[in-house]
Structure formats: structure tokens, C-alpha cells
Computed example of a mutant assay.
Amino acid sequence: MTLANGDEVRARLVIAADGRRSVLRDAAQLPCRDLGAPIDGYWFRVAKARTPDNRTEGYIDRGQMVIAIDRGDYFQCARVIPKGSAEAIRAKGIDRFRRDVAAVAPILAEGIATLASFDDVKLLSVTLDRLTRWHAPGLLAIGDAAHAMSPVGGVGINLAIQDAVAAANLLAEPMQRGARLDGLCAAVQRRRMFPVRIVQALQHIVHVRVIGRALRVGSPRPPLLMRFFDRVPLLRRIPARILGLGVRREHISSPRTPSR
């Protein structure tokens, strides 16, 4: 592998874990399938007073959707928007942005003035894709480099760690023996592709049937699916368990490398 400064690094295996804009997967020309994501998000912080408990709240009202994650002395917020609408929202100015957010999420009204300009607001372009082949000779992609996840459920880091554990379990001992790795890299993909497909399918359903309907202009109420889960709290455990624990859990079983 050649670095930006021209130095060359030689290794039996390079792990591409450099995220959804992976230069390694692009350099290897690994084939990618774009699943489509109809949303983007504006991310920003809103100051708040500390409270005994921290809760994540979602607010939906008449085509607007705001998420507020309590981080103690501030909310980490996301205004979910239809893909392609970012510039139109920005053109209306930061004052209009603050008013719209406060109208949807009154809990943010007191601290929203801390947004001085759009320099305090970052656009997250949501991507949902996956490689159809995660590996090339001497290279294995994992995490977002292999499958870019939507922010829905906050599961990207979970899957990335599970990919890493599966890769270690399948590759560590053969690497110590000096075995060929190309076939084993394919085995990592076979093991991890199933949970990736399941989670991405769930995210796609949420994009279309929940968020898409919530962002529909003129819709005064949250989508039926969200109201159903709100009325039956026990059902909330199902998506929480799938997103929190994963579809195929990974446990470390790779051998320890002898200390030198």
C-alpha cells in the first residue's frame, strides 16, 4: 500500500475501516450497491441545564421532525429533512431555522439562540449502501467501508465492531500459521452479510414508512406505526433488542497473540 507521502507499507492483509467515504475501497474498485436514502439531517447543539436523567426525544409535527439527544449540559440535535432540501432550508436563514426547530421541539426553544449562524449547523448526507464484494487480494473492508448505515437506530458502530470481532475470529489463527487469507476474507463477508442486510432492510422501512410519512407536508400526526409503538410500550423492546444487540451476535474467540 502506498501512502500519501509516497511511502510504501507492505502487509499480508490491509483492513479497510476508513468509513463510508473509504479511499481504500475506491482504490480497490470494490463493487457497491446504493440502496437509496430519502433523507438528510442537520446536526447541531443546543445548550441546556443539567437534569437528573438524560433522555432521547423525538418530535414530529406537520411535516417536521427533530431528534434531541440529552448529553447532560446540551442537546445533540438532528433536524431530519428530505434529501435535496438542505439548500432551500439554508436559504431561508438561521432565524427561520431556529423558529422552525423551536416550534416542533419546544424543549429546545430556551437554548436555540446559541445557534448564531449556519456555521453552527452541520449537514449530514445520509447514505445507505453496501459492497457486494468486501475483499480483494490483500484487502478486507469492514464497518462503514463495507456497508454505510443510516443514522436510524445508531447501529453503525455496533455492526462495525461485530465485523471486527468476526474478522479476528476467522483470521487471527490462520494468520499466525501463515495460511492464505483470500478465501477467509470471503468467509468474513458471508458471515456478516446477513445481519447487514436485515438491519439495512429495517432502516429502509423506517425511511419510507415512518420518516417519509412524518416529513410529508400537511401531515398533522405522527405515522400510524409510531403511534402504535407509543401506545403499546412492550412492543418497543422488539426494535430496541434488534438494534441494540444485533441479529447475529459476535463473541471473541480468536487466540491471543503471544507477547514478545
Rank of each mutant, 00 (worst) to 15 (best):
M1C: 08
L3P: 12
A4M: 11
G6L: 09
D7Q: 15
R12I: 02
R12K: 09
V14L: 14
D18L: 07
R21N: 14
D26H: 12
A28C: 10
L30N: 01
C32P: 00
R33F: 13
G36W: 04
G36H: 03
G36Q: 04
A37W: 00
A37N: 05
I39Y: 00
D40I: 00
G41N: 11
Y42P: 00
V46N: 02
A49K: 10
A49C: 04
P52M: 04
R55K: 11
E57K: 05
Y59I: 03
Y59G: 06
Y59A: 12
I60K: 04
D61C: 06
R62L: 01
I67C: 05
I69D: 10
Q76G: 11
V80W: 00
I81L: 09
A86I: 01
A86E: 12
R90S: 03
R90H: 11
A91K: 13
D95H: 10
R98G: 05
V101N: 03
A103M: 05
A105H: 00
I107V: 11
A109P: 07
A109F: 05
E110R: 15
E110D: 13
I112A: 06
S117Q: 09
K122L: 10
L124Q: 14
D129M: 00
L131D: 07
L140Y: 05
I142G: 00
I142P: 00
M149R: 01
S150P: 06
S150D: 08
P151A: 04
P151S: 04
V152S: 02
V152M: 10
V155E: 14
N158A: 02
A160C: 13
I161L: 15
D163V: 06
D163M: 08
D163A: 08
V165M: 05
N169W: 05
N169T: 08
E173L: 09
P174C: 04
G178A: 06
G178S: 12
A179H: 13
L181N: 05
D182V: 05
C185K: 01
R190D: 14
R190P: 03
R191T: 09
R192L: 04
F194L: 06
V196P: 05
Q200H: 02
A201K: 05
L202H: 12
I205A: 15
H207Y: 12
H207D: 15
V208L: 14
V210Y: 07
G218Y: 09
P220T: 12
R221L: 11
R227N: 14
P233T: 08
L234Q: 11
R237H: 14
I238K: 13
I242Q: 08
R248I: 12
R248W: 13
R249D: 14
R249N: 10
H251D: 13
H251E: 14
I252N: 13
S253Y: 06
S254F: 15
P255W: 04
R256F: 10
T257F: 15
S259P: 06
